[in-house]
Design a protein around this nucleic acid. Structure first.
Lengths: 232, 232
DNA sequence: CGGGACTGTCACGAGGCTGTAACGTGTTGC
DNA sequence: GCAACACGTTACAGCCTCGTGACAGTCCCG
C-alpha cells in the first residue's frame, strides 16, 4: 500500500496533542504539516494543498467548524477531505459536521490505529485517477491548474460549480452517474442538496457549451442519471 | 426514490441475528440474500452479484476477514462494497477491516437506523456497473459502466427496462428463465406486475435489436419462458 | 451600501416510458 | 378440425422523468 507521500494538515491548538498526532502520523508514513490555529492553517493551505485535513473541533478564535465551512465553500479546496476531531461525541455536533461536508469524524480520546485506519479509508475513497491536470477531449480543453475551460481555443465562461461538474465528468468519461453520486463527488460528501439541483447545473453547463457544439457530450441516461461522452 | 431493489447479501452465522437483519433490511426496501457461512456466501455470490455485502466478523470456519480479503482480491467482486459487523468495538479488528478495503463497519449492538444510514451512504458512493463490466457477444456490446448498448458499432436506443432486461439476459446466456424469475431479477422483489408484461418488454427489446439482426438472440421457450443465446 | 454573479429550489409542461387489456396468430391435445 | 392454450403484437391512458425558466437568497467586490 503506497499510502506514502500523502500530506496531512493537522489543525490543533494544543501543542501536546499536535505532537502526538505528528508522531503517530509520521510513523504511518504520512507527511505532516502542522498549524496551531486557523490563521496558520490558512497559510499552510495556500502554501501547499494537503491530501487531507485533520481538524480539531474546538479551538480558540475561529472554530474548526467555521474553517471547515470555509474550505468546503471554496471550490479550490472543496475536495480536500476533512476529518473532524472532537472532544465529545455529541450527536448534534457530529451531525452538523457531517452536514457540512466533512468526510469522517473521530472523537477524543481516540486510538491511533483507528485514526490511521479512518484516514486510510477516507483517502482510499478520494478519486485515485482523477488528478489529471489537463484534459483535452475533441477540442474541449479543461485545465485544472488554472481552472479554465476552452473550446476550440475560445474561452468558456463557467461558474465554479459548472467547472467542477465538467471537470468531474470529463475525467470520468463513458460512465453513468446518478444524481446522488454526482452530488457526492462534485458537491462533497454528506451535503444535503436537492437531487434535481444537479439537473439545473447540468442545464447551465450545457448552455455554456452549446455555442461550441459541445453540449451533446453531456448525455442524459433516462432513469439513471448523466454520462459524459466524447461521442456527440 | 429508485433506491429500491438493491440486493444485500447478509453473511452471518447466528440465525437469530440474520433474521433481525433481514427484517430490518426488508423494511428499508432492500432485497435480502442470506448466507450462514462463507461457503454458502460464495455460492450466493456466484449466483447473483449483490449490491452490498453485510459481513459478520466472527464466524466459525472461514472468518469474515478472510472472505473480505477474498472478495477484494477478485477483480470481479472487488467493487462490491462491504460493511463489516463486529461483535464488540474491537479496536484492532476494526482497523484491520478498514485497511483491508471494507467500506464501513458497524459494531454490535447496533441501531438499525444507523445501519440503514450507513448502508445508504456506502451505496450512494458506489458507481453503477462497477469496474469494467462489459460484454460483447457476437458484435452486440453491452457496457454496464456507460449503460450503453451498441450493435456492430451502431448505438441501440433502449428504454431503462429494456436495457436492464438485455443486461440481465446477456449476463446469463444459454439459460431459460420463467417470467416470474425475470420479474424478480429485472423488476425487483416485492413488485407486483402482470407476468405478461414481460412479454411486452421482450417484444420491445426484440424490436430494438431487429434492425441489426440480433432479435433472434432472445428466444422463446414455449411453456417456460425466455432464453438468451448467442446462436441466432 | 448597491450591483452583479452564483446558487439552490420550485413549478410547469413536453415527451418518453410503463403496465395492462385486447386482439391476433401459432401450437398443442383431443 | 376444433377448442384450449401460449405467445406475439398493438394501442393507449397514466405516470414519471427530465428540461427549462423564474426567483429569492447569499456572497463578494467595488
Amino acid at each position: 500500500m503506497s499510502m506514502a507521500n500523502k500530506v496531512i494538515l493537522v489543525v490543533e491548538d494544543e501543542a501536546s496533542i499536535r505532537e502526538m498526532l505528528r508522531f503517530a502520523l509520521q510513523r504511518a508514513e504520512f507527511s505532516v504539516v502542522e498549524a496551531g490555529d486557523v490563521q496558520a492553517a490558512r497559510l499552510k493551505m495556500a502554501e501547499r494543498r494537503p491530501d487531507l485535513v485533520l481538524l480539531d473541533w474546538m479551538m480558540p478564535g475561529v472554530s474548526g467548524l467555521e474553517f471547515a465551512r470555509e474550505l468546503k465553500g471554496n471550490p479550490t479546496t472543496r475536495d480536500v477531505p476533512i476529518i473532524m476531531v472532537t472532544a465529545r461525541a455529541e450527536e448534534e455536533d457530529r451531525v452538523r459536521g457531517l452536514n457540512l461536508g466533512c468526510d469522517d469524524y473521530v472523537s477524543k480520546p481516540f486510538s491511533f490505529p483507528e485514526l490511521i485506519a479512518r484516514i486510510n479509508a477516507v483517502l482510499r475513497r478520494t478519486v485515485p485517477g482523477g488528478e489529471e491536470e489537463r484534459m483535452a477531449i475533441n477540442g474541449l480543453e479543461v485545465d485544472a491548474a488554472s481552472q479554465r475551460v476552452t473550446a476550440k481555443g475560445q474561452p468558456v465562461r463557467l461558474g465554479p460549480t459548472e467547472y467542477k461538474l465538467l471537470h468531474f465528468f470529463a475525467s470520468h468519461p463513458e460512465r453513468v452517474y446518478t444524481r446522488e453520486q454526482v452530488l457526492d463527488r462534485v458537491w462533497g460528501h454528506n451535503v444535503y442538496v436537492e437531487e434535481r439541483t444537479v439537473d439545473v447545473h447540468i442545464r447551465r453547463l450545457r448552455k455554456a457549451l452549446e455555442p461550441f457544439g459541445y453540449d451533446g457530450m453531456i448525455q442524459t441516461v433516462r432513469g439513471t442519471g448523466y454520462r459524459f461522452s466524447e461521442k456527440i
